[in-house]
Design a protein around this nucleic acid. Structure first.
Lengths: 209, 209
DNA sequence: GCCCCGATGTATCGGCCCGATACATCGCTA
DNA sequence: TAGCGATGTATCGGGCCGATACATCGGGGC
């Protein structure tokens, strides 16, 4: 799951670990609090060992940093990495529909084709509906078995489920009608950058001045 | 965190692993899907090794089960285990306020004294408020940096945060006024069993007949 | 009478991920 | 000039998960 997120971010621009963590935190802020370094660095090593990413010492944006030993390590995605990302983004297993998995997939929906988007949204909806039914069963037939606080917890959970199902339904409707995820107050979608995971689109990613 | 949940359930009645997992699933259904056996059994072993629970082979409710080798193992809580539970339920660290930790603590609020309940609810509220502020920042100042789908994800997350804060505020108000967690349509709280975690309250926990 | 299947039940293993910790540099302020 | 907070890289122990294996029990189909 983390592989997907890292590959996705590095597809936009090369980065070092610290930066990657921050981007991850804002992009997936709702899903996971902040990825731990104890997870990030080993994962980066693994991705590098497999060949999905490469390590390019001493980047151009290194205006004043680290005068000496152990400068920051900048990672960039490889061609194989891009292929891998395309695979991961397209295929949907059971783990695609749990909270973390769905969040990561959704965060990269602008790089996902519409059929896959629809498939994932519907799978997620089904998952949440099942959870909702489970909670309804507990709440209806378990009147006296559980104490008031536990019941309150279930009620709050059920409410969240119903809310998410409605949200998903709205998204699915929009998706089917070909519209962008436009909630009232949203702005235009900025015209899909890099239509598919095509190699060699010369996107001029700006470094901040 | 799991320790707390297991100790709490075994405080109500002795159980074997399978049953424990099911109870865990219904009681914490909103929090974690279902605890894995790969977690449960090692944890039970650890709790037993520490002395917080004991294993009592061949229970009375064993009407027709397992004629031969490896009958089901029934676990029951020890006096030390009850002490440990009281400690865990009363103290609140940072992990008490994340999703999983809060859920488990909340599920055992009927065994928690009011001061602690209030402390935990307020800590949780603070945590969620921080998350909410983070999301608001991202949404306000990151207009063009993120694509429409990512923004939609943040918006949905922000909505969930605001909703949970309101929920917590309601609970806190109720708590302060000494009322049970009575949402409209809720029933009476069954008269606080075991007022505080006092030792040796001879609570006649019924086994179901 | 027989067999298979799903629920019940216990248990282990590899692997992901986290929190704590350590270490080092840079820019700012007191 | 000393400390402090942000930036940065890295490891370690441990919690928890999914997959897997194995065994028994009750019931339904044939």
């Amino acid at each position: 799951m983390l592989d997907l997120a890292i590959l996705g971010l590095l597809q936009e621009t090369p980065m070092h670990g610290y930066e990657l963590r921050k981007e991850l935190a804002t992009k997936l802020g709702t899903i996971r609090a902040a990825i731990s370094y104890g997870t990030l660095y080993p994962t980066l090593k693994r991705l590098q060992a497999t060949g999905w990413i490469t390590e390019s010492e001493s980047d151009p944006s290194m205006i004043p940093p680290m005068t000496s030993k152990r400068g920051r390590v900048v990672y960039k995605i490889t061609a194989e990495g891009k292929e891998r990302f395309a695979d991961l983004i397209a295929q949907a297993g059971p783990e695609t529909y749990d909270d973390a998995g769905f969040g990561v997939h959704f965060a990269f929906f602008s790089r996902t084709d519409q059929a896959t988007r629809l498939r994932i949204l519907e799978g997620r909806r089904r998952r949440i509906e099942e959870r909702r039914e489970g909670l309804r069963d507990v709440l209806s037939r378990a009147g006296e078995r559980l104490d008031a606080y536990t019941l309150e917890l279930q009620r709050h959970g059920l409410d969240a489920c119903e809310r998410e199902v409605r949200w998903l339904e709205e998204l699915i409707t929009n998706e089917r009608s070909g519209r962008a995820p436009a909630t009232p107050g949203s702005f235009d979608i900025p015209a899909d950058p890099a239509r598919d995971a095509s190699p060699e689109v010369p996107r001029p990613h700006q470094d901040r001045p």
